[in-house]
């Protein structure tokens, strides 16, 4: 029994490495096509609307709620030390560096990443991907490049919006619950939130956008087994993207802190 468990664990490790290799290959193939041929402008714009514009409500709603909760909780804790006025500044830094980028990434992964996997997965099981190939069209160039570009461009824009709305959400709580005036709230943010804090957060977001696009496409291309397979691909896309976003966030966050204190 233990030997079977070890063997099963070994198989899982090998499969994980194989998948990581395939995902990296898909990413490199997509990069190659980005430079090798002119991107399809129509497709890219469509994906940008889908990735970005259509995600605005869910991203802003999430950001507003988190901004409100964060300032409420931070302010409550700071009240104990008589430092309530710092709630805005501390929350703004947390929002710009970590919460804004990560929550935007997660919101987009669950909305867009899942639908990319479902769409491409359905194309895979209905032979539409094979049809693309028979029409002498590379599926990576046609399907992945526009999604990768849309992710890399739109996730940073969504993050900027999320940070702004998060700060506004915090302001509502600051003036209504914490007794901080508007002027104090924003001047505190101004003195805490230096440009480098904003850059430190934003620099991670194109990576999150690329992760969502590549993982969604990878899961879609590897779909098999009809409707059940499409469901599995969708779930795997969200789970993998969510984990990778937090993984890359930690790696890049630690690296940025080390070089840019």
């Amino acid at each position: 029994m233990p030997s079977r468990m070890i063997s099963h664990f070994g198989d899982q490790v090998i499969t994980s490495f194989e998948k990581a290799g395939d995902i990296t290959k898909l990413f490199l193939d997509t990069l190659k096509w980005c430079f090798k041929s002119k991107p399809n402008i129509k497709q890219t714009l469509q994906q940008m609307v889908y990735f970005g514009f259509d995600s605005i409500p869910i991203v802003l709603l999430t950001a507003m709620c988190i901004g409100m909760i964060f300032v409420l909780q931070t302010g409550y804790q700071l009240t104990k030390f008589g430092a309530t006025i710092y709630a805005g500044g501390i929350s703004a830094i947390a929002f710009a560096r970590e919460i804004g980028p990560v929550f935007t990434g997660w919101a987009v992964a669950s909305r867009v990443g899942a639908s990319i996997a479902a769409e491409i997965g359905t194309m895979q099981v209905t032979e539409q991907i094979d049809a693309l190939k028979t029409l002498a069209t590379d599926p990576v160039r046609y399907l992945v490049v526009p999604r990768l570009l849309a992710g890399v461009i739109m996730v940073p824009i969504l993050t900027i919006l999320a940070v702004l709305v998060g700060i506004l959400g915090g302001w509502i709580i600051a003036i209504s619950n914490l007794g901080i005036t508007t002027q104090v709230y924003f001047s505190n943010i101004q003195s805490f939130l230096l440009p480098k804090e904003i850059y430190a957060g934003l620099i991670k977001t194109p990576v999150f956008g690329a992760t969502i696009a590549i993982i969604g496409c990878y899961q879609g291309f590897n779909t098999f087994g009809g409707a059940e397979g499409v469901g599995r691909a969708t779930r795997n896309s969200v789970v993998t993207s969510t984990i990778l976003i937090i993984f890359f966030d930690y790696i890049m966050g630690a690296f940025i802190l080390a070089i840019w204190k």
């Binding site: 194309m123 539409q128 049809a131 028979t134 002498a136």
Partner: peptide, 16 residues
């Protein structure tokens, strides 16, 4: 080489 071919799929495989 694929440009020399046309293929009809079992369930047509139209782009939906």
């Amino acid at each position: 080489v694929r440009e020399k071919f046309g293929m009809l799929f079992q369930y047509a495989a139209l782009f939906d």
